[in-house]
Design a protein around this nucleic acid. Structure first.
Length: 556
RNA sequence: GCAGGCGUAGCUCAGUUGGUUAGAGCGCCGGUCUGUGGAACCGGAGGUCGGUGGUUCGAGCCCACCCGCCUGUACCA
């Protein structure tokens, strides 16, 4: 190491990953606890699975490839089998359930929940990380729409439990069968059109991101992301004919179109009338619940309008009809339980992932504007989502096992809440600091620390949480530094015992909160010091704990 | 992945047509102050100018490649 430029190791973190300090940890812990309580109220029970699974259990082998998909962190075990870090909590649960069905370890229908970190090897963005926490609820073994409706209600209740007011979030519901039905109607059914169906679904998914003309481009020839030809990147389109595009756009605008009474009145012919049997006594009271937020949602606000418009699509293949009926069932179920459209609404543009959903799909979105640290508006994706995945468990078993689930993006939600100042900024309360006045009496000071640590914060609750206290471990050359340290730790108070106090069997306890308030008023050194003594009390050493308890009570 | 923008001290930023020892404010450390956080004043530390290579007598500045960050877009289980 005689080199003048030693090659020092650079301390750095891979992109998309974040260290987390006390404030963030506290915020996460609180969120997780809130979500957990809500999920348990709904009857879900916890289960935990490891972060690593066999890659094929996660379903991420590409066809024609012996390597797992990019986007998943994967590596090979000693025996050359591919392992992957989980990228969601749903696939691992399916594996867990598949191993236990028919045993005494699981009772169907099985409601379970779990929180955990998941990993995705992709480009990070605002609220988007390569390691992040999800909180999942799943119901396995029930094909009932009541299970799906419950997921939506659970999502809405959880948002509110987390302090997001009604109207600031919305649970959007759609059904994959409906989308499939629409595509079948324009001749995109069948195996040979799978690729184009994907393109169409992706275009539909962007309905709340781009104006309708842009969607039209994506369904037709394609779109330049710079806004005009030749600018930016080109997204290949689905090459539908303009008639086919019209069919899809009409479907996307079902909510809007149905505002016309004439359309609604003609709607009933094309679908089974049972769909509309109870429409009229359902919705008008719901209008008070109606609010058009910054996100212009495509679907109409009134279920009656939405379903009338869907009926009016003149699509009557089996998938479409089934899908609409399922949507109607969910809509009725949640509304009968008192969830209005402000909380849970049908939105025909919701697509979600393309992998395994087979029926209803849900997405939770925040409806308020979010700005980054510099005040620029940020586009946040959904903070939660899910849907029915009837095929996922059956991959491991011959039989079909219906299942539906919902996942909250805890990390993303936390990032959003922290950007709007709802959490993360509050400093974590520090411990009581016992200062070292006399180096030779460290044992005495340590004894005080121990005495405090063994005492309850609240004298009336001896079994409650104990006082947090610590000894100053730095160089005790002067008291000022020790107070500065205590201040930075956000300590509620410091304990001082110098020669004067010791001689009389006393201790001085300084309330730092009070001291800070007094400090702001004085200019000169002498007045300042004079004022500071007002923030402290000198009491018999026997009253140490009592005095600290008084200060802690004042502070909370 | 694609397109564009940006990288100078812990933070926010200056830095002349390429010219000698790269600056400021805030923050940090120390002192004035041997029993008190703040203020004030004084002093100090901290930079291979994102990295590598090139052009040049000479590069923070010009060129190439790489890395990172931001925005849009793609993907989003």
């Amino acid at each position: 190491m005689t080199d003048k430029k030693p090659n020092k190791l650079k301390a750095r973190l891979p992109r998309g990953l974040a260290d987390r300090g006390p404030a963030e940890i506290a915020a996460t812990r609180e969120m997780v606890e809130t979500i957990r309580q809500t999920f348990e109220r709904y009857g879900f029970e916890p289960v935990e699975t490891p972060a690593i699974e066999y890659t094929d259990a996660l379903g991420k082998f590409l066809p024609d490839q012996d390597r797992p998909n990019e986007g998943v962190f994967s590596f090979q075990d000693d025996d050359e089998q591919w392992l992957s870090l989980r990228y969601d909590l749903t696939a691992p649960l399916a594996r867990y359930v598949a191993e236990r069905i028919g045993t005494e370890h699981i009772v169907l229908p099985y409601r379970s929940y779990r929180a955990g970190y998941v990993f995705r090897n992709e480009k990070p963005g605002p609220g988007r990380f390569r390691q992040f926490m999800q909180f999942d609820a799943d119901t396995v073994g029930s094909a009932s729409m009541a299970a799906d409706a419950e997921m939506c209600m659970l999502a809405a209740d959880t948002m509110e439990a987390l302090g997001i007011p009604r109207g600031s979030y919305v649970v959007k519901v759609n059904n994959r069968k409906v989308l499939d039905g629409v595509m079948e109607a324009i001749g995109l059914g069948g195996e040979e059109n799978a690729g184009r169906r994907l393109t169409v679904l992706r275009a539909i998914d962007k309905a709340d991101k781009f104006p309708i003309q842009e969607i039209r481009k994506l369904l037709g020839e394609g779109r330049w992301d710079g806004g005009e030809v030749g600018k930016g990147d080109f997204t290949k389109g689905a090459f539908l004919t303009s008639g086919e595009i019209d069919t899809i756009l009409a479907f996307l605008q079902t909510g809007v179109a149905a505002q016309t009474k004439a359309i609604r009145d003609t709607a009933r012919a094309s679908l089974r009338s049972s769909l509309f049997s109870d429409i009229d006594d359902l919705d008008d009271d719901d209008l008070s619940d109606l609010e058009v937020g910054p996100l212009q949602l495509r679907a109409g606000n009134r279920p009656r309008d939405t379903f009338a418009a869907l009926a009016n699509q003149e699509i009557d293949n089996k998938a479409f009809v089934e899908g609409v009926e399922e949507l109607k069932a969910i809509s009725d179920l949640v509304r009968r339980s008192g969830f209005g459209t402000k909380r849970i609404k049908i939105d025909t543009s919701v697509v979600r992932g393309l992998e395994y959903y087979t029926g209803p799909v849900f997405e939770v979105e925040l409806t308020f504007e979010i700005n980054d640290e510099k005040g620029r508006p940020v586009r946040f994706g959904s903070v939660g989502g899910g849907g029915r995945y009837d095929g996922l468990v059956s991959r491991f078993r011959g039989e079909t096992v219906p299942a539906t689930g919902f996942s909250i993006g805890v990390s993303r939600l936390q990032a959003a809440l922290s950007l709007i100042g709802k959490l993360g900024d509050n400093k974590v309360q520090g411990p009581v600091v016992v200062t070292v006045f006399d180096k030779d009496r460290i044992a005495d000071y340590q004894a005080m620390v121990t005495q405090l640590r063994n005492a309850p914060i609240n004298a009336e609750k001896p079994e409650g949480p104990k006082i947090r206290a610590e000894l100053y471990l730095g160089n005790p050359k002067n008291l000022g530094n020790q107070l500065k340290y205590a201040d930075k730790r956000n300590a509620p108070c410091v304990i001082i015992q110098g020669g004067n106090e010791k001689a009389k069997g006393e201790v001085t306890i300084k309330d730092l909160t009070l001291g800070a308030a007094l400090a702001a008023q004085e200019k000169g050194r002498d007045e300042y010091l004079q004022k500071q003594t007002q923030a402290q009390r000198t009491v018999p050493q026997a009253d140490l704990v009592k005095e600290v308890q008084t200060i802690l009570a004042r502070r909370s």
